[in-house]
Structure formats: structure tokens, C-alpha cells
Amino acid sequence: MRRRWMIVGLAALAVVLGIATNVADARLLPYGPTSSTGAIGEDAGAYPFTVHVSQAQAAHTVLVCCRFETPPPTGTDGVWVVVTLSYATADRPRGASGTGLVLRSADGREFPVSNRTGSGGWLAGPDIWVRGDLAFEVAPDALEGLTLVFDPGIQLYGPMPTQYARIPLDLDPGAVLDVIELSEEQILGAGER
């Protein structure tokens, strides 16, 4: 009987510890829950960043803008996915690294920002929003169910987990454009995204 009560007590302790961990994850971290899920057209938290996806499109080729001469469109063996994204920080100027920006397919495959289009992320400031285009090369069968994962990967508080944002893109596999022209980064006015 005594052993049975001990097992019951340990099981109750495990449940209490699990609840306490979840509460700490959701309430006690300075930036809220570790993972935040947003949507196109909404702000999503990835502390110290706030992220906003305004558009996502798929195309067979992309046109990289440049100041002096426009190069020919860049093709791909897969499909280009261009995400129009803006973000700002909460504390100081920071840049989003390309390694923390991926598109994740429904079956778990991750596609990083293409290094053939120049921009892999840009600098933004505290409440200074900067918008630009990120281009990803993805497998054609991954278009449906793609999610943008924005992970700053910054250790602000030692080994504590950092917050990242997940934003489903809701792309239509049947709506693939011929070409998309990538726009340059732009500092936005207050309230713009």
C-alpha cells in the first residue's frame, strides 16, 4: 500500500512539474510563449523582433532588382516563393540572419533563403520597421502547407529558449506566376507594415 501511494505521489509530482513548466514558458519568460503563431497580415512576436508578412507568392523566375542594370530573370529547378516581410525590434538595431529564416513544409522539410538573390535579411531598429522581399527555392510538391519560421536565434537570457514565430503562408499550388520582381528594402513610416 505504501509503495502504491509513493507511485501515485511521484505521478502527481510529474504532472505538477509539467504544469509549472508550461506556466513558466507561457507567463514568466520576458517575451511570452516560446512559439508564436501568426498569419499573413498580422504582427507576430519573435522577441526581440516583431514580424509581419504582408504577402507570399510563388513564381517560376525572379527578377533581382539592382541600381544600375537589370539582370535576366533567375530560374530554378523548383519553385520560387517570395515572401514580402517587414520587421522591427524592441530594443536596439538588429539584423535577422538568414539561418533563422526558413520555409517549413507540411512534412517537415526546411528551405532556407536562397543565396542567389542577394538579400538574406536586413537591419531593423527599435520600432523602426523595414520591409523587403525574401526569396526561397522550394520543391514544387511543398507549396501547399508552407510556413515561414522566423527564429532570431539570439541568447538574450543565457540558456533560456528564445521566441520564434511561425506564419502559415496559404499558397495556392495552382497560382504560380511567371516572374516576380524583388523589391529593395524600405524603411517604413510609423504604423506601416
Binding site: R92, P93, G125, P126, D127, I187
Partner: peptide, 15 residues
């Protein structure tokens, strides 16, 4: 950088 009461750092010559 200019620092405000909320701890925001606005760095000179950026943006």
C-alpha cells in the same frame, strides 16, 4: 546611440 526611458537604442547614422 540615443537611449530613451524604455531602453530603446537609436543608433546614429543608421536608417
Amino acid at each position: 546611440a540615443l537611449v530613451d526611458g524604455g531602453g530603446r537604442h537609436f543608433v546614429a547614422n543608421l536608417f
